[in-house]
């Protein structure tokens, strides 16, 4: 099980990387920690002709803290986040999610931006990052762009990123101190891909009450106003107020027909709600 032949280039700047990807015209793939693309290359499911390695670009590991948000470079790893090596805008949510991704040896190389660009529907960040109301700061030969995270993924492995467009950083708004969150990744073996993801974010000072249903074998469902799922505002015993039919209606709208997924999605959201509203 070896990858098929490819060429390799390791640019030192984002502009060089974008140029190389643009010139390759669709046969190139950007690669960072190689923890998702690596297996696909080994299995020969992906057979790009050129890999553009982004891990030499120092800009991509920059992290900056601002008054109301934190900008995390795309090549920051899950382990960097798990261990709290960067400022946390999320009252622990990012670190909690990071610690549940695959295994430590994978987290030491797998990157936040790589995971978002790869857009595996069962991955963790594609659900957690949009839940936080984050934005992707991208760069291509044509310039920079800001994409709302919840509008970046279209379906399995498909995003609105252009072939020569790279995520430079992820801008995550700071949660106010009174905020609450819950995040449930359902799987049968620790570290495997999620069978279902449910997430809740409640930030009263910023008037946010959001929910996410993820790992539904297509792009996650982001609910910007979660009152519609809980028949009212955030409060104690939130899990007991979950309107399962409202969840199923959302799955219907996304054409999610798999019975197992339809069983698990409300359960995951319920557990997230319980975690978020527990005193």
């Amino acid at each position: 099980m070896k990858p098929s032949r490819f060429d390799f280039v390791r640019p030192a700047s984002l502009n060089e990387a974008a140029r190389l990807l643009g010139e390759a015209g669709g046969v190139a793939k950007a690669i960072a920690g190689s923890q998702s693309l690596g297996p696909m290359l080994n299995l020969r499911i992906a057979q790009p002709e050129l890999l553009v390695d982004l891990t030499s670009i120092s800009e991509l590991t920059a992290v900056t803290e601002h008054r109301d948000h934190v900008e995390i470079g795309a090549c920051v790893t899950h382990a960097d986040i798990e261990d709290g090596r960067i400022p946390d805008p999320s009252l622990g949510l990012l670190s909690f999610v990071a610690g549940g991704i695959a295994y430590r040896a994978v987290r030491n190389r797998g990157t936040l931006g790589g995971s978002l660009a790869h857009a595996d529907p069962a991955a963790d960040w594609i659900s957690a990052i949009p839940l936080l109301g984050a934005e992707l700061l991208t760069q291509s030969s044509r310039g920079a762009r800001v994409i709302a995270a919840e509008r970046s993924m279209v379906s399995s492995f498909v995003t609105t990123l252009e072939a020569d467009e790279l995520i430079r950083a992820i801008r995550i708004p700071k949660m106010s101190p009174r905020s609450r969150w819950g995040f449930c990744k359902f799987n049968q073996k620790v570290g495997e891909f999620a069978h279902a993801v449910g997430g809740i974010l409640y930030d009263p000072d910023n008037r946010r009450f959001r929910a996410v249903l993820g790992a539904i074998e297509t792009a996650p469902i982001i609910v910007a106003d979660a009152t519609t799922l809980f028949a009212g505002p955030f409060g104690p015993d939130l899990d007991k107020r979950l309107d399962v039919n409202a969840v199923l209606a959302l799955l219907d709208a996304k054409a999610v027909t798999d019975e197992y997924t339809r069983q698990l999605a409300p359960v995951a959201l319920k557990r997230a709600a319980k975690q978020a509203s527990a005193s």
Binding site: T55, S58, T61, V76
Partner: peptide, 9 residues
């Protein structure tokens, strides 16, 4: 920060 093993180009 960043993937272990990564170095400047």
């Amino acid at each position: 920060l960043g993937p272990v093993g990564a170095r400047p180009s």
